[in-house]
Design a protein around this nucleic acid. Structure first.
Lengths: 228, 228
DNA sequence: CGGCGGCTTGATCGGTCTCAAGTACGGTGG
DNA sequence: CCACCGTACTTGAGACCGATCAAGCCGCCG
């Protein structure tokens, strides 16, 4: 697991910013981002920023998916969050990033200077309030994630699938952008346990698996009731 | 564990606010709290607010200690944080509290109307910024707490002791305000595992235990190196 | 002194991890 | 079009860590 990650890191190189290109506004919070931000592309597993690096920019996913993570002392990787199109990430209160961020697959990300956001908030109370609300939502998300980590493997996987379904599916079918390794590192489980648990859910008729990443939620109620 | 908690709850009754008493300012963030807040006392295990109740107030510990928690579907209790003198808690972005809060021991808490804080932030960008920074610190704290929950029992307990020592000790001796049950519910471990782990740390000469709550950090380096 | 709550210790159980092997799938080259 | 390869995923057997169940201890207070 460590080796895989290390390899990824070596492969990742810093991209040039395409500052010339001013994209059209996209709906969502931080309206300012769309006006003064610029777009960047990142390849699969490419690093977007690293832990402890200066937090110079704020990011918004346009296309693709992004993971943030920390590496533990024993080499394990704990994924802090998955960010999907429309999600903002990388906004820090302090000087440096608390986590690393990588593209999960080929991704397009809108980038804006943090200083622009912060200085706007110093003049405009409504912008400041938006910052506060954004960070509050992150806080809520991390609290929920923390609650996941003290549950059983079945409960964790079920919650994960329900969350992903809500975030990126309109029907009962979900196309997961991330690998079993990513899911395991998000849930604090091994890939084997994630895989076995998925298999159990299939035999319980709670989900269907056509390919390993294409999942059909056959019985949402059963999934929810695992966390009764 | 559930029973114990239920009993506590039954025992707890809603206190009257002492709105007449205006305490003298106390140093710390949210300077406004000391000017327009009022003090309340809570007995051991008394509820301060409950999950899903309207978040009408923001709180600051003056004396004693407070825990916030959620009850899981299987009856376990997950403690989200311990708040010690000087700490602010209960500030929500949304309408309702996301967690419950109880006094761990007899505690004095400064209370201020949330609406006063929020409306101030609407006029004063610096106040808005303070709110943002406070929530950002909470976010950072929860992220660290989440990282704890994927570590081994020894690592969790060692981290916990180091954290408590930094927060409430000036020397190597720490007087813990909370029970083994509280520690277990904070670390996602049972009381038995917490107790056994403490015993191990004693035999490793990493800590000393005169009473169960009076702990001496004999070898901080060893504790830190458990998380190498 | 007795009783009770909080803590410790012991024995056993069970869920998840580890290590190892096997399988499915997508891409690449013949 | 198929053979081959590498990567991702699944499945199995056994080990291990922490949970559970049960008993005993300590300190405090009536």
């Amino acid at each position: 697991m460590l080796k895989e990650n290390q390899l990824r890191k070596v492969a990742a190189s810093r991209p040039q910013m395409n500052l010339a290109h001013r994209p059209a506004p996209i709906p969502g919070s931080f309206g300012v981002m769309e006006r003064i931000g610029s777009q960047m592309k990142f390849g699969r597993n490419q690093e977007i920023f690293g832990e402890n690096e200066p937090a110079e920019y704020v990011y918004k996913v346009v296309k693709g998916a992004v993971r943030t993570y920390k590496i533990l002392c024993d080499g394990r990787r704990q994924i802090g969050a998955f960010y999907l199109p429309g999600d903002i990430f990388g906004l820090e209160i302090g000087k440096d990033h608390q986590v690393s961020a990588e593209a999960i697959n080929d991704a397009v990300v809108l980038v804006i200077r943090r200083s622009a956001v912060v200085s706007l908030a110093e003049r405009d109370c409504r912008a400041a309030r938006e910052l506060w609300i954004f960070t509050g939502r992150e806080l809520h998300r991390v609290q929920e994630h923390m609650m996941l980590l003290v549950k059983s493997a079945q409960q964790r996987v079920a919650c994960f699938l329900l969350e992903m379904s809500e975030r990126l599916a309109t029907t009962d079918a979900v196309e997961l952008p991330m690998s079993r390794q990513d899911i395991g590192d998000y849930l604090g489980l091994t890939i084997e346990t994630v895989s076995r648990t998925m298999t159990q859910l299939v035999s319980n008729h709670a989900i269907g698996l056509s390919t390993s990443r294409h999942i059909v939620l056959r019985n949402r109620k059963a999934l929810r009731e695992l966390n009764s």
